[in-house]
């Protein structure tokens, strides 16, 4: 499934996808990881979710309760999203180096 058919692969979109693949899964984390302006990240997430590239889920209740805060919503790549990563890397070969390895601290499991 080619990315181009599902969405416009711009630099911010590629950055968001790469950030998620490297483990930054929450909205604010992605903002921090990508350094994109605050107002741009959420619309990208919404669009990718609606196109079936990302899937949003609520984190486990226990974890949120333990920290006495509301449940956060995290985003993960769908199989479609995984498949499109190749094209992302191809189009923006320098980008993956900007993101660190998977950050287990933010793993929602």
């Amino acid at each position: 499934m080619g990315v181009g058919r599902r969405f416009n692969l711009t630099y911010p979109t590629a950055a968001v996808l790469l950030a998620i693949r490297s483990g930054h899964r929450y909205g604010f984390d992605i903002m921090d990881a990508t350094g994109l302006p605050d107002g741009t990240v959420y619309p990208i997430l919404r669009r990718l979710e609606r196109r079936g590239v990302l899937a949003g889920r609520w984190e486990s209740e226990e974890r949120a309760r333990a920290e006495q805060r509301p449940q956060r919503r995290y985003y993960a790549l769908t199989p479609v999203g995984e498949a499109s990563m190749e094209e992302v890397v191809e189009r923006f070969p320098a980008l993956p180096r900007l993101f660190g390895s998977i950050d287990s601290a933010t793993d929602p499991a």
Partner: peptide
């Protein structure tokens, strides 16, 4: 979702 992010 927004409140959770801000609260966190």
């Amino acid at each position: 979702e927004w409140e959770a992010e801000v609260a966190w």
